[in-house]
């Protein structure tokens, strides 16, 4: 029964999205106006393309983010059982996070996280 309802939900989801986009495309009036093609309706006009080259320093942000993303993966099963294990689990996770906090301090000291 579970799989049948998932299948039904899948089809309904696809059909709903297809219907909304398809009907909207069919029924709407299409009057071209260059103003409509702009990214913002107010404020500064945009300049140049969106395909700019990033400063290489931002790659560090991505790398540091990925490292702490992996850390979160370990926090999740810990959070599920934290209540039943109690104090021991708390000490274990404090040690775990403290070691990674050293890494964050190192990144801060090396100015890896400063704005370019």
């Amino acid at each position: 029964m579970g799989s049948v309802s998932i299948l039904l939900l899948m089809f309904c989801g696809f059909a709903f999205a297809a219907l909304a986009i398809g009907l909207g495309n069919k029924l709407s009036l299409k009057r071209y106006n260059p103003e409509k093609g702009e990214a913002y309706e107010c404020g500064m006009e945009t300049q140049g393309t969106t395909w700019v080259q990033f400063h290489v320093g931002y790659y560090l942000f991505a790398l540091v983010f990925l490292l702490f993303d992996v850390e979160i993966a370990f926090l999740y099963p810990w959070a599920v059982v934290f209540k039943e294990i109690g104090m021991v689990a708390f000490i274990e996770i404090v040690f775990f996070v403290l070691v990674l906090f050293l890494g964050l301090l190192y990144a801060h000291k090396k100015k890896a996280l400063s704005w370019m």
């Binding site: 560090l60 790398l63 540091v64 490292l67 992996v70 850390e71 370990f74 099963p77 810990w78 059982v81 294990i85 021991v88 689990a89 274990e92 040690f95 775990f96 996070v97 070691v99 990674l100 050293l102 890494g103 190192y106 990144a107 090396k110 890896a112």
Partner: peptide, 29 residues
Amino acid sequence: QMLDYHHHGYVYPFEIVSFLLLAALVGCI
């Protein structure tokens, strides 16, 4: 299992992982 510090627990590898992540972080910086 990850937080178990008895005979068949994995708390030691779990804490070592934090050092591994720290080494990766320092290395990439």
